[in-house]
């Protein structure tokens, strides 16, 4: 209590005991001090709260960013999934196309092979009948065997009508000279007699003159007049191709006919004279 208070209370300040005044001052000072301390504490706490608020604000901002980022990631994942599906579909389509392309290539290779085979057959037939020289016809038969079939060692036999023995008229790739064979004897003789070819499908390289890998009878008008005997084929040839069987048929049915035609032709007369009388024969 101040002097003023004392005066207001109606009592002079000098009337208040000194101890009480001191006590009052001490209390006031203490009170004020406490007030200051309390205020300082409040200010401190306020500052701390502000700091915390700032931190929370920053955290909040960060969380907001994260949420936005998560959304973007989810969107990206969704896009990636979609792209993955598209990629799988494209891979499947690509595989299908690859398969179709392979099929196409296979078909093309097959067609190429067929064209090649047909060309071989055409040329073989054409050349067989393109000459009036027996030597050339036999040469063509040898070419067909060596160049088209891929025979490495072979013999061409013709049946001698008097002795009924198949006589070798041409051969290639043999170490020994082939001997005549009686009709009906061994694979060659039997083929001429029966007109049935004998073609081995096993080992195409291990044949011999006595046991060739293929024997094709040469015939005309349904009768055997000779045979082609393949003893061995070229090393790279592992099996007969389809066209080989066609060539065997061509040789079997047409080589003898071509040989007969060339044998009947007389070069000294020439082609025109050789046809004399044909028109009359056709009229009969």
């Amino acid at each position: 209590m101040t002097d003023d208070d004392a005066s207001q209370s109606g009592r002079p300040a000098s009337d208040v005991p000194l101890d009480l005044l001191k006590e009052r001052d001490a209390f006031v000072r203490s009170f004020l001090k406490k007030g200051v301390e309390y205020t300082e504490q409040l200010l401190r706490e306020n500052g701390e709260l502000r700091e915390e608020l700032e931190l929370l604000r920053a955290d909040n901002a960060s969380l907001r960013t994260q949420v936005a980022s998560d959304d973007a990631i989810r969107e990206l994942i969704s896009t990636v999934d979609e792209l993955r599906r598209e990629r799988d579909q494209l891979v499947q389509r690509s595989k299908k196309l690859e398969g179709a392309e392979k099929e196409q290539q296979g078909r093309q290779a097959k067609i190429e092979q067929e064209i090649n085979d047909l060309a071989n057959l055409y040329v073989a037939g054409f050349q067989l009948h393109a000459s009036l020289s027996p030597r050339r016809v036999v040469r063509h038969v040898c070419d067909m065997l060596g160049q088209l079939v891929g025979a490495e060692a072979f013999v061409v036999y013709l049946l001698d009508p008097d002795t009924k023995r198949a006589v070798p008229i041409a051969h290639e790739g043999l170490e020994e000279t082939p001997e005549p064979i009686a009709e009906g004897t061994g694979p060659v003789g039997e083929a001429i007699l029966t007109m049935l070819p004998r073609i081995s499908e096993d080992d195409l390289h291990g044949g011999s003159l006595e046991d060739p890998v293929a024997v094709v009878p040469l015939g005309a008008e349904g009768r055997g007049v000779g045979a082609v005997s393949i003893v061995r084929v070229l090393g790279q040839k592992k099996e007969w191709a389809n066209v080989d069987h066609e060539l065997f048929q061509l040789i079997g049915h047409q080589a003898a006919v071509a040989m007969i035609a060339t044998n009947l032709y007389e070069p000294e007369k020439g082609p025109q004279e050789s046809l004399r009388g044909l028109a009359e024969k056709l009229r009969q």
Partner: peptide, 12 residues
């Protein structure tokens, strides 16, 4: 020299 082979080559 072989007419057959020649023709085949020409064909090809």
């Amino acid at each position: 020299d072989s007419p057959m082979m020649r023709q085949l080559l020409v064909f090809a």
